[in-house]
Design a protein around this nucleic acid. Structure first.
Length: 872
RNA sequence: GGGCGCAUAGCUCAGUUGGUUAGAGCACCUCCCUUACAAGGAGGGGGUCGUUGGUUCGAGUCCGACUGCGCCCACCA
């Protein structure tokens, strides 16, 4: 058979190699480059989550990023200029940890820079080499460059249609400039401030952490029943899991209505070991049924202690230092210095053991410690419980203290913002309503954005925290550690009367909270910013609503008095088959490269698209096969339809069944479009796929004989004969043949485009066989382009009849090519009339050689057939 | 303790504003190596819609209660 000479349909199409082939073409042609249009309404802009490059991508990332890409491709086909940047979150603690392990080094800021330094060949993680801050940062940059290439390769292989020219990195100088400028603006407006206050502190990483980075974990411990002493010598028992903190006790606290302690309120008791006079006070947040009903308040054991300390104006008696050890010097409030000596410099664990022994010796431990499991706050990346240490930190207002601001943020994120799915907005409001402190943005780390701040030193060399020296905006980014403060010489650094740099860096969320500003060119490229901001969509998973999503709303609200985007689209997780969250420690992580290699990108993307917005989805390999089968089917169906004849315009469609096909397709187009407009990519795929399978199984089967020209509808005879060589002798095709060809080609064309967002590789491949340009810049199909009218009922009636014919053969356990001697269709008269319109097509597909009997009767269609033996 | 979500076939999930006999894919069974496709095709079996009360002519769908599972937040003396 001859096909249109301009078409190039391969003999044996396959999926292998399509990813490499088209990824390269898209790269060479800059297929997904953002081209600036005239106006904002022609743009669809996406605030892509910048993945943490020091981590590894798992299949959940692949799903989530695919969801975004599917929407991006749809919008592009709708004619939007899609602004789809990618970012790498490469600064911060995760990178530092990876660098430490990878190179076997650690950062010691006191060491001078060594330009000759090269990391060891074989790093010994147990004996990390101390290197300077600058050497450390150089290694961070070196390693992130390698990691980022791996990520980019994977995203390209997956077919993400991001514009790789707009790539950003959170540690890049331009990003640092944005982060510093935004911070200076916050500072100028009074939203950022420096405060010396109790801070949640990770003793391993020796840094403050923010409320949003906390995680609850079970932690084994013991209840200790300990006697304090009333003035008359009688014991007052408290229960504590942290007896080592007795030295920092500043009050005993019970509920004001608790009858047991009425007589003690206002009096002083003595601790069992250190001779400290401690007031007994009342506070309504003390719970009579917890422990002994009276609690020991220390500075600081937990966040309740902080509340009591603040509200009752208690003295600060901190003994635990930044390293998690009890301080070496005896605290001045300890009346019995000898008692402290055994504890000095010990870790909390050793100090606890020592205190227990001392309590036993003094007889103040009532009974043995009882084992318990308590919940403790952990830094999400740490493995020791957090301590609370008073430190000086930078904060940004986030509604944790300012209730007006909280209300504004609740209106922004909880009401104004559109959420997909909608119920995810509850996570936002829940979080904002539960905030109990402002946003702590400073970290005592190295690989991050420095604060553009110095402090003047007085004549004693003490910093003046009240009057920081600010960097000028036009000099950003700036590193105060290597650049002297304005008006000072480098020689005055850390000298009395000179200046000192703020040595902290911003937390990674303080930078990524500005991703819309970074990506859209805030303050750098006004034209771009006006075209892309506020952005259209913020895709992400539900685990970082309280961090990334919330902090972006905060920054945008404070800076622009607006939302950073119109809507947030929330993906669920991919969980393991037992519905457990995937994690490295459980060993249930599915590595995406393997799954992509095994099933192909289109198949994995198909499976991703079947996971609805927000819904967690169990990982199941067998589902990937289904996607692969669909991709193969697209190849084969395209090859078959395009092999049946040359290009035929839609105007040639005249047969009722052909018109019905296109009428049904209109319904698919409008349903898929409506779903996409609601960001319901799953429903759009389902409706397309359902139609496509019936298109393949029923419609193509039904029309192929006529389309080939093997069937002349009028006479039921062939209009094309085969020559000896198998080449067809082209006669002028009948109008009926042209109608079938035109209908099949039109439907195929539409279906290829409907699948393009999901299966970018295979659709680009089949499109390239017969169309010019990339399918990903083709117009999204419309009802209007299907400019014919038909009766959809005909299509379903024929499908039913086909099913009956097949069922008859299948029940007789005969081959489907078995000829039929006589067949009876019994059913509603209207259905039979419809079937008569496709009688010749039914004859052809069913090999009906003899009579067709039409029997009108109520009820569903029933088919009975007399079969002939197949002709050998 | 507060909030959110889920519960439909062995598994994964659809099921629009209540309306005939509750659907799809996978898995399973039977048949067919048919000139697009055997990594295929055709046909088939399989569900008391978590429990329970109510509203209604009619409930998988709406309302109440309960049970189980998951997630978020808080508390953690």
């Amino acid at each position: 058979m001859r096909v249109n000479a301009t078409w190039n349909v391969p003999e044996k199409p396959g999926l292998e190699g399509l990813e490499d082939k088209w990824a390269k073409t898209w790269r060479d042609n800059s297929t997904y480059a953002f081209v600036r249009p005239e106006s904002r309404d022609q743009v669809f802009s996406i605030d892509t989550p910048p993945p943490t490059v020091s981590g590894s991508l798992h299949v959940g990332h692949v799903f989530s990023y695919t969801h975004t890409d599917v929407v991006a491709r749809y919008q592009r086909m709708q004619g939007k200029h899609v602004f789809y940047p990618m970012g790498w979150d490469d600064n911060g603690l995760p990178t530092e940890r990876r660098v430490q392990n990878y190179f076997g080094v650690r950062c010691d800021p006191s060491i001078p820079y060594d330009p000759e330094f090269t990391p060891p060949e074989k790093p010994d993680p147990k004996r990390q080499i101390a290197i300077s801050r600058r050497n450390f940062i150089e290694l961070c940059i070196q390693l992130t460059a390698v990691d980022e290439q791996v990520f980019e390769d994977l995203w390209r292989h997956l077919g993400l249609s991001v514009d790789w020219d707009t790539l950003y990195a959170t540690i890049a100088p331009s990003t640092q400039a944005v982060a510093q400028r935004a911070f200076l603006h916050n500072l100028a407006r009074g939203e950022a401030y420096l405060s010396y206050a109790p801070t949640l502190w990770d003793i391993t990483f020796q840094t403050a952490v923010a409320q949003a980075e906390l995680e609850d974990r079970e932690y084994p411990g013991f209840y200790h029943r300990v006697a304090f002493h009333a003035p008359d010598g009688s014991p007052i028992y408290i229960e504590t899991t942290r007896p080592e903190l007795i030295v920092s006790v500043c009050a005993l606290i019970a509920h004001p209505d608790d009858v047991r302690y009425q007589s003690l309120f206002g009096s002083f008791v003595t601790d069992p070991l250190f001779g400290i006079q401690i007031p007994v006070l009342a506070h309504t947040s003390a719970e009579p049924d917890k422990g002994a009903g009276i609690a020991m308040c220390c500075t600081f054991g937990d966040l309740t202690d902080v509340t009591w300390w603040r509200e009752l104006n208690l003295p600060t008696r901190t003994v635990i230092g930044r390293d998690g050890r009890l301080q070496a010097e005896t605290p001045e409030w300890v009346g019995n210095p000898a008692a402290y000596e055994p504890l000095a410099g010990k870790t909390t664990y050793s100090a606890r053991e020592a205190v227990v022994e001392m309590l036993r010796a003094s007889g103040d431990l009532d009974g043995e410690p009882k084992p318990t499991v308590r919940m403790a706050n952990f830094y999400e990346k740490g493995d020791k419980p957090l301590e609370i240490v008073a430190t000086r930190q930078w904060y940004v207002s986030n509604g944790g203290k300012d209730l007006n601001l909280r209300g504004e943020l609740l209106r922004r994120g909880g009401e104004e913002l559109e959420w997909v799915p909608d119920y995810m907005r509850n996570r936002f409001t829940n979080w904002v309503e539960g905030l109990n402190s402002d946003w702590l943005i400073s970290r005592q780390r190295f690989f991050g954005v420095p604060f553009p701040i110095w402090y003047p030193l007085d004549n004693d060399g003490e910093p003046n925290w009240e009057s920081p020296i600010l960097a000028s905006e036009d000099l950003l980014p700036i590193d105060p550690m290597s650049t002297p403060a304005p008006g000072y010489a480098e020689a005055q650094r850390d000298q009395p009367g000179g200046f000192t740099a703020d040595k902290d860096v911003m937390d990674t969320w303080a930078t990524s909270s500005l991703s819309p500003q970074i990506a859209c060119g805030w303050g750098v490229d006004d034209e771009l910013f006006n075209l892309t901001f506020p952005m259209d969509v913020a895709p992400q998973a539900h685990d970082i609503i309280r961090t990334w999503l919330f902090t972006r709303v905060v920054r945008s609200h404070l800076e622009f008095n607006s939302l950073p985007w119109k809507r947030a689209t929330i993906s669920g997780f991919v969980v393991d088959p037992d519905r457990k969250k995937m994690s490295k420690s459980k060993g249930n992580v599915v590595v995406p490269t393997e799954i992509l290699a095994k099933f192909g990108s289109d198949a994995v993307r198909w499976r991703a698209a079947m996971a609805r917005p927000g819904a967690d989805s169990p990982f199941d390999e067998t589902q990937m096969k289904v996607g692969r089968r669909l991709a193969v089917k697209v190849l084969n169906a395209s090859k078959f339809v395009l092999g049946m004849g040359s290009a035929t315009p839609i105007s040639a469609v005249t047969e009722p069944i052909d018109l019905a096909l296109l009428e049904a397709l209109k319904g698919v187009v409008s349903a898929a479009t409506a779903s996409f407009e609601a960001f319901d990519y799953t429903s759009a795929l389902e409706v397309t796929e359902a139609f496509f399978w019936s298109f393949c199984d029923d419609t193509i089967e039904l029309l192929k004989e006529r389309a080939y020209g093997n069937l002349n509808v009028a006479q039921g005879t062939a209009s094309t004969e085969l020559s000896d060589t198998g080449e067809s002798t082209q006669r002028v095709p009948s109008p009926e043949a042209l109608s079938a060809r035109a209908a099949l080609q039109t439907a195929l064309n539409v279906l290829q485009r409907l699948f393009a967002p999901y299966l970018p590789f295979v659709t680009e491949e089949v499109w390239s066989w017969w169309q010019e340009g990339s399918i990903h810049h083709a117009a999204w199909p419309t009802v209007a382009e299907l400019s014919v009218e038909g009766d959809v009922a005909l299509l379903s009636a024929v499908a039913e009849a086909l099913s009956g014919i097949r069922g008859a053969k299948s029940n007789a356990k005969m081959s489907q090519k078995t000829a039929i001697a006589r067949i009876e269709f019994a059913g509603e008269a209207a259905s039979l009339d419809l079937l008569k319109l496709a009688e010749n097509d039914l004859r052809a597909v069913g090999s009906i050689k003899g009579d067709i009997v039409w029997t009108p009767q109520p009820g569903p269609l029933s088919v009975s057939a007399e079969l002939l033996a197949p002709v050998e």
